[in-house]
């Protein structure tokens, strides 16, 4: 999968961060979309597919954990990376318990964030491949079984 097929949703209430993050991800070849609050994020994850979401955990309209649970239901395979300005061990544990895949602290180094996104996308591709292989194997086995019974 080329990067331009990888779509990333940025959920962040700070307009400047939304804009700069979006620009630098596009510069790297990702396709991006943004949401300024939890409500918009849920709307977008219901309507579209995203490989990954970058989430600010403190949003004006809802708790970050609530948003995590909501979007996890719509897109369980989507990688969710929390970017927070309120770092604490409790926050991190809570986020990970609510389905987050990684947790980084603001201000994060763009290099670090990009490396993390690449790593997570690699993992996602691998998991997809595994699933495909398993499905293929299952079909093969099932076909053999049916042949044997006929």
């Amino acid at each position: 999968m080329t990067k331009n097929k990888i779509s990333i949703l940025i959920v962040e209430d700070d307009a400047n961060i939304r804009e700069t993050l979006s620009s630098l991800l596009q510069q790297e070849g990702y396709s991006t979309d943004t949401a300024k609050d939890g409500r918009e994020a849920i709307q977008k994850t219901k309507a579209k597919f995203f490989n990954l979401a970058l989430l600010d955990i403190k949003l004006p309209d809802m708790e970050g954990t609530k948003l995590l649970t909501a979007i996890h239901e719509d897109l369980p395979k989507m990688v969710k990376i929390i970017i927070t300005g309120y770092p604490s061990l409790e926050n991190a544990i809570e986020a990970l318990n609510h389905g987050a895949d990684a947790y980084i602290v603001k201000p994060a180094k763009p290099e670090k964030l990009l490396a993390l996104i690449e790593e997570k996308m690699r993992e996602q591709r691998q998991a997809e491949k595994m699933t495909e292989e398993k499905v293929t194997e299952w079909i093969k086995t099932r076909a053999r079984q049916l042949e044997a019974h006929s």
């Binding site: 400047n16 620009s23 510069q27 603001k106």
Partner: peptide, 25 residues
């Protein structure tokens, strides 16, 4: 103060990274 400053700092970091890359690219 920490939280309030973290956001603008994140924007500056992102923007600088973008400009650096854009210039060389």
């Amino acid at each position: 103060v920490g939280h309030d400053l973290r956001n603008p700092l994140q924007s500056i970091k992102n923007a600088t990274y973008y400009l650096n890359k854009e210039l060389s690219r």
